[in-house]
């Protein structure tokens, strides 16, 4: 056991010292690996966060009922009673055009551009509206309710607020497939890149390998340092990419905070997405190991035959 452990520790030490003696080129390799890891990670983060946002919106079951601008108060009362008798409606409330106008002015007070624009309007352009909370959250039933409300006399437009979020979710599922294929392609690139790097190292150590075989080295003794080299490239590349992604998210978050503020939301990206970092690094280590294994097996069979 201690013999086995000693063997592995020596291999790791050997690899690290080789990397240190070629610090610059090792760093560049790790940098390239980390860039290759960053790309799918960033795509994933983008798609994942957008889909979380759209899911959040899809869960809203609110239907907005905007009335025609010239609706009389009798018609409003009729609609009110129709809504109160509808069994699919959980609750609803009425916002008159004057209330909406006041709310808009209040909300836009902080932002000079919008409040300027609002103040320039001569008259209130807003319609009276009902905001309806449906009982069901099923998209089909919501849609049925929406179209039945649309047909009520005096209703200008019935909007299912989640409609655009649903469309976004459909687009995002395509986006997720896209991320998957990008990740797959970059995994192949990574495999080839690490494999090639290890193959170059084997070539520079050809003499040592030949002598080692002659004086009784086993296959695993020769292979293990190279396998660790591949895995360590993956590890360092993964760590480097985690740092890069963190830096990018922090920059993103500043711009997102500005936008979120406009929408009076506190949405931001999670800076320390530990799960993502760990899985990306683990995948990189595994790919490094496999890449090294493939090239070491191929290169050594050539050396041995010779």
């Amino acid at each position: 056991m201690s013999h086995w452990l000693n063997h592995h520790l020596q291999a790791i030490k050997l690899v690290l010292s080789r990397m240190r003696s070629n610090a610059l080129s090792s760093f560049i390799i790790c940098l390239v690996i980390s860039v290759a890891l960053c790309l799918p990670s960033l795509f994933y983060l983008g798609v994942d966060n957008l889909s979380k946002l759209s899911q959040h919106m899809q869960n809203e079951t609110e239907i907005s009922l905007f009335l025609k601008l010239d609706t009389s108060s009798e018609t409003i009362a009729q609609i009110d009673s129709a809504l109160s008798q509808n069994p699919d409606i959980l609750e609803y409330h009425f916002v008159s055009k004057d209330q909406a106008w006041q709310q808009l002015q209040l909300k836009s007070k902080d932002n000079a551009d919008i409040s300027n624009a609002v103040n320039h309007l001569a008259s209130n352009p807003l319609p009276d509206a009902f905001f309806i909370q449906a009982k069901s959250a099923q998209p089909e039933q919501l849609e049925a309710l929406r179209s039945s409300l649309q047909n009520i006399e005096g209703v200008g437009q019935a909007l299912l607020n989640a409609e655009w979020a649903k469309r976004l979710a459909t687009l995002l599922s395509i986006g997720k497939q896209f991320v998957f294929f990008v990740a797959l392609l970059l995994a192949v690139v990574l495999l080839v890149m690490i494999g090639n790097t290890v193959r170059m190292q084997i070539l520079t150590q050809k003499d040592e390998i030949e002598v080692s075989y002659l004086i009784g080295a086993t296959n695993s003794f020769i292979k293990i340092p190279f396998l660790y080299a591949g895995a360590l490239y993956g590890l360092f590349g993964g760590i480097l990419s985690s740092i890069m992604i963190t830096a990018m998210i922090m920059t993103f978050n500043q711009s997102i905070a500005e936008i979120s503020h406009l929408y009076s939301s506190d949405f931001s990206l999670r800076v320390l997405n530990l799960q993502l970092y760990v899985s990306v690094t683990a995948i990189a280590i595994i790919i490094g190991w496999i890449g090294a294994y493939l090239s070491v097996s191929r290169a050594l069979s050539v050396i041995r035959i010779k």
Binding site: Y213, L214, T218
Partner: peptide
């Protein structure tokens, strides 16, 4: 490999 470890090998070209 374990057989080879019984030997000490000295090569013509040192290696």
């Amino acid at each position: 490999p374990f057989l080879r470890r019984r030997f000490g090998l000295i090569f013509q070209d040192h290696k």
